[in-house]
C-alpha cells in the first residue's frame, strides 16, 4: 500500500512549429493518501491525462517529482495498474491470458497465474469468459477485463484514464458502482480522470478540478462519507453546484456561465 505525492510537477511540450514550448500542466502539488479515491475533473485539453501519464511513468515531468510509496517514479511499473479509456486489451490473447499476463511478467508460474486471474475475473463478475477473445465482449465487459488485468499483478495504485467514457449511461453507472466496490474490497489508492461531474460525485473521496490549459488546480472538494453515491441526491446539490461552476468558468471563461 502506498500513497502518491506530486511536488511541483509540470509539463511543457514543444510547439508543433518547433518554436518554443506550450505548457500543458502548470506546477502542481497533489497528495493522494493511501487507499484514497481521487477523481481529477476538468475540461478536455486541461492536462489531466498528461498528469496521469506522468504518475504512470509514460511521460516524464518537465519539473518536479512524483513519489509513489516514497519512491520516485521513473518509468512505468506493475505497482501502478493502468486502465485505458480504449481498454487496450490484447486482442490476440484470451481473456484469462490477458489478465494473467502481468502476473507471468512477474515470474509467477502458469498455473498460479491462471488461478489468480480466475479470482480477479470473478471479482469483476466475468467468470465463464476465460477462454473468450476480447472481440466477443461488449465495451463494458472489456473494461471489466481491463480492470482485472490492472489489478492482477497486485499494484498499490490504480490509475484510470476516463475508463467509462465510451460506455452508454446505464452501463457506465453499473461500472462505477462496480469499481467502487472493487476499490473498497481491494483497498487500492486510486486516481481516476474524468470529464464527468456525476462520475466524480459517485466515485471520489476527493475531487480535484483542473482549469483549462495550462492545467492548474482550481478547486478541491472532499466528499464526506457515508453518502448515497447518487449524484442526484439532494444532499449533493451544493457540491454539484460548486463543481459545475468551477468547470463552467473554464469552458466559458468570459463569465457567461450561470
Amino acid at each position: 500500500m502506498a500513497g502518491v505525492t506530486l511536488s511541483n510537477v509540470s509539463k511543457s511540450f514543444p510547439k508543433p512549429d518547433g518554436k518554443g514550448t506550450f505548457v500543458a500542466l502548470s506546477p502542481t502539488d497533489i497528495e493522494v493518501k493511501e487507499g484514497e479515491f481521487v477523481c481529477i475533473l476538468g475540461p478536455s485539453g486541461c492536462g489531466k491525462t498528461t498528469l496521469l501519464n506522468i504518475v504512470a511513468g509514460f511521460e516524464t515531468p518537465t519539473t518536479g517529482t512524483v513519489l509513489v510509496g516514497g519512491k520516485p517514479v521513473r518509468k512505468p511499473g506493475p505497482e501502478r495498474g493502468y486502465v485505458f479509456q480504449e481498454y487496450a486489451l490484447f486482442p490476440w490473447m484470451t481473456i484469462i491470458e490477458n489478465v494473467a499476463f502481468g502476473l507471468r511478467n512477474l515470474g509467477v508460474s502458469g498455473a498460479e497465474a491462471a488461478t489468480k486471474a480466475r479470482d480477479y475475473l470473478k471479482l469483476v463478475g466475468l467468470s465463464g469468459f476465460e477462454q473468450s477473445y476480447p472481440n466477443r465482449l461488449s465495451g463494458g465487459m472489456k473494461q471489466r477485463v481491463a480492470i482485472a488485468r490492472a489489478l492482477a499483478p497486485g499494484p498499490d495504485i490504480l490509475l484510470l484514464d476516463e475508463p467509462f467514457a465510451a460506455l452508454d449511461a446505464q452501463t457506465r453507472y453499473l461500472m462505477q458502482i462496480e469499481l467502487l466496490r472493487i476499490q473498497r474490497e481491494a483497498r487500492k489508492t486510486t486516481i481516476l480522470i474524468t470529464h464527468s461531474l456525476e462520475e466524480a460525485i459517485v466515485l471520489a473521496d476527493r475531487v480535484i478540478v483542473l482549469s483549462a490549459r495550462p492545467g492548474r488546480i482550481k478547486l478541491i472538494e472532499t466528499i464526506d462519507h457515508p453518502h448515497t453515491r447518487n449524484p442526484n441526491d439532494p444532499s449533493m446539490t451544493e457540491l454539484r453546484y460548486r463543481l459545475f461552476q468551477a468547470i463552467a468558468d473554464e469552458i466559458a471563461p468570459v463569465g457567461a456561465a450561470a
Binding site: 509514460f58 501502478r80 493502468y82 487496450a88 486489451l89 490476440w92 511478467n105 499483478p153
Partner: peptide, 25 residues
Amino acid sequence: PIYRRAAMALGTSQWRTFTRVIVPA
C-alpha cells in the same frame, strides 16, 4: 502505441513485449 503502453504498465520485459505484443499486433 496503446499496446506498448499497456505492456509497459504491466511490467513486460523488452523481449516479451516484442514476442507477445509487437509481433502479434
